[in-house]
């Protein structure tokens, strides 16, 4: 057998990945690697090509070009054995509304060679009170938890989560983060697609930003963007009537002290440390501007 063992080689390798639909190119030469045990986030605006990329990795979509290896195999030729090693939480909820939470999890557990304990998983997603409720009677957020439970029931080595916390209240989201951290501690490799940057920052070791089908940045979440984008920004007016001025500086306190020494108290003084969201929006904005040019 050529399938690689756990811990040897990257969990996911993507090189020069392309996907076009007719004349439209959804994914345009993306490449990255995900190490075993890593939690990796894919960020990007709607229509950027995130879900297309993930669905190619999951074996749901054919690619137009490039090389892809997931757990040592090409997802194009997915075997049952390979499928038993991955877990998938799709962006859209699957229905099967006429079974109870417990019935559905028990049935799906039976499809895997070494499933997790059904009670344990029901507890981990916080549905103990709803285990005998039919799925169609659950709220949207509760159904999403069933999706997550079905994604992890098979004890996957690699878990794909496509916008998993859509419809979660803040408490459910925190509980979900805890579950993901537990899975990660157990050595599960996690690929997370999300709109929520705080989620990516909370959970992931590294993140890739995709816009317009291209990879525009990749790295640890707190190192995304250019070095300059993370430099604090001082913004002020010299007088009430003068124009707004901005200065990027690694020493904002010293700079402000200098300003005060020179001009006295500046008007509307702000010291801004760019948030992940600011950096992300700047990245995506720059990519879109470039694409439009």
């Amino acid at each position: 057998m050529t399938s690689s063992h756990r811990g040897s080689g990257p969990a996911v390798t993507v090189d020069g990945l392309r996907k076009s639909y007719g004349s439209f190119t959804a994914v345009d030469g993306i490449g990255f690697e995900i190490a075993r045990g890593e939690t990796f986030a894919l960020l990007g605006p709607n229509g950027a090509g995130k879900s297309t990329t993930v669905e190619i990795l999951e074996g749901y979509r054919e690619r137009s070009g490039g090389e892809v290896s997931v757990l040592g195999a090409d997802p194009r030729h997915a075997t049952l054995e390979w499928k038993a090693r991955i877990g998938i939480v799709l962006q859209q909820t699957g229905e099967s509304g006429n079974v109870t939470v417990r019935e559905q999890l028990t049935h799906f557990a039976g499809l895997y060679p070494h499933p997790r304990d059904v009670d344990e998983v029901i507890a981990a997603v916080g549905l103990e009170q709803k285990d005998k409720t039919r799925i169609k009677s659950l709220s949207g957020g509760q159904r999403r938890r069933v999706d997550v439970a079905l994604g992890v029931i098979g004890r996957p080595e690699l878990l794909f989560l496509d916008e998993p916390t859509t419809g979660f209240d803040p408490e459910a989201r925190r509980q979900f983060w805890e579950l993901i951290r537990t899975l990660s501690r157990e050595g599960t490799t996690i690929v997370l697609t999300t709109h929520y940057l705080d989620e990516a920052a909370q959970l992931s070791d590294r993140a890739a930003v995709i816009a317009g089908g291209r990879l525009i940045d990749i790295g640890p979440v707190h190192e995304l963007g250019s070095a300059e984008a993370r430099v604090p920004l001082v913004r002020w007016r010299e007088t009430e009537s003068s124009a707004v001025r901005e200065q990027r500086t690694l020493e904002p306190a010293r700079f402000v002290a200098g300003l005060v020494a020179e001009h006295g108290e500046p008007a509307e003084l702000e010291v801004i440390r760019p948030s992940l969201e600011d950096i992300y929006l700047e990245l995506v904005g720059a990519a879109e501007a470039e694409a439009a040019a």
């Binding site: 799709l90 799906f108 499809l111």
Partner: peptide, 14 residues
């Protein structure tokens, strides 16, 4: 239509 087959496709169900 409702995603049941897509979900099953991602599991090791023959």
């Amino acid at each position: 239509g409702d995603g049941t087959l897509k979900r099953l496709a991602g599991t090791p169900l023959p």
